[in-house]
Simulated assay, not measured.
Amino acid sequence: MGSHPRVVSILTWDSRIDLQLMNKEGKTALDVALSCRARMPSFRERLTWKALRHAGARRAQRKQVQTQTPYMEFYKDRVNTLLLVATLIVTVTFAAGFSVPGKDDDSSEPSHGIMRNAVYNKFMFHTYIISNYIAFYSSSTAAVAIIWSQLGDLNLAIISLKFAVTLLGLALTMVSIAFMVGVHLVVSKNIELAIFVLVMGLIGILAISMVFAPLFFPSSSFHRITRYILYYPFHLLVIVTRSDVDDNDKI
């Protein structure tokens, strides 16, 4: 009820905790957490729900989602934001498909220039092409799914948005890889700079994956391996957003 995600997460890892235990009102811990939410839940409340769902907590009382205007307006804002992101990724990847790194200006063959007779650069070039194409079609599919969510049905909007967020997570990861590999191909003659680009690129991709993981992975998990994977991104978000600090203690 107090929305303390870090405390809830610690308790869920204790084998003595029964997440399906119900109170006198017939509510589980997840029911209680969801019943205390406001019209616009805070990120702290959302992290508390995720801590329970990652542990496999279930609801004892399942209510059908009603198509209320406030919720439709909330999802419309999310739809517009995701559609903008998907459109930007489609535009960037489309342009990147015709701007192949390592190609000479006076040659129409990508085998010339930096990639001449180099197995390593050939592998990196293939990685660039594959990553860019996966990002393009993932973001395009996400855009189509987001269009489906604009038909006015709240249940369809929720399903479409979950599908679109997963595809956008894949697209953003692939765009990051394509950017790293593309810059590496351009500066590959400078060994020190090329190594720097790879190292910083890998760190950036890891950071993006850690931040996006709570949105990218399923909200409910009954496998301990998945819980271990989601543990570190979850606590990173708790620390960054200061969700483990009481509201009165925040500056």
Rank of each mutant, 00 (worst) to 15 (best):
A157N: 05
I158N: 07
V165F: 03
A213G: 00
P218A: 12
A171T: 00
I229A: 11
R39S: 14
A51V: 01
V85H: 02
H184C: 06
L11S: 07
F163T: 15
Q61S: 14
D77P: 00
S140F: 12
Q20L: 06
N132R: 10
A60T: 07
V181Q: 09
M174S: 06
L11K: 09
S3W: 11
P233Y: 04
V8N: 04
A143N: 03
A157R: 12
R224W: 14
L154T: 08
P214N: 06
A57V: 05
F125K: 02
S139F: 04
I89Q: 09
I239S: 11
H235K: 07
Q66M: 12
S243G: 10
G97K: 06
A143T: 04
L151W: 09
I114W: 08
M115Q: 12
I195M: 02
G201W: 04
A194P: 00
V32L: 15
N23F: 01
S107E: 13
I146H: 00
A142K: 02
L47K: 06
I10G: 01
K76P: 00
V65G: 01
R39P: 03
N190T: 00
S209F: 09
Y133I: 13
L84V: 02
V90S: 06
E109Y: 15
S176R: 04
V186I: 14
G204H: 07
F98P: 02
L161R: 09
E45P: 05
P214W: 08
V85K: 07
S220K: 14
M40Y: 15
V119K: 14
R227S: 07
P70A: 09
F212T: 11
L193T: 00
L19Y: 04
H112I: 02
A164V: 02
F125D: 06
N155M: 10
V183W: 05
M22A: 05
L198G: 03
R116T: 08
V100W: 04
V65P: 01
H112K: 12
T241A: 10
D104H: 03
A157Y: 01
L206T: 13
N80L: 04
V85W: 01
H54C: 08
R46K: 14
K50Q: 14
S42G: 12
A213F: 04
A171R: 04
M124N: 13
V119I: 13
L230E: 15
G169E: 06
A157P: 01
L19E: 08
Q64E: 15
F98E: 12
V32C: 09
K76M: 10
L170M: 08
T81M: 10
I251N: 08
I146R: 01
L154K: 06
V211F: 09
P41G: 10
M210V: 13
L30S: 07
F216M: 09
S139K: 08
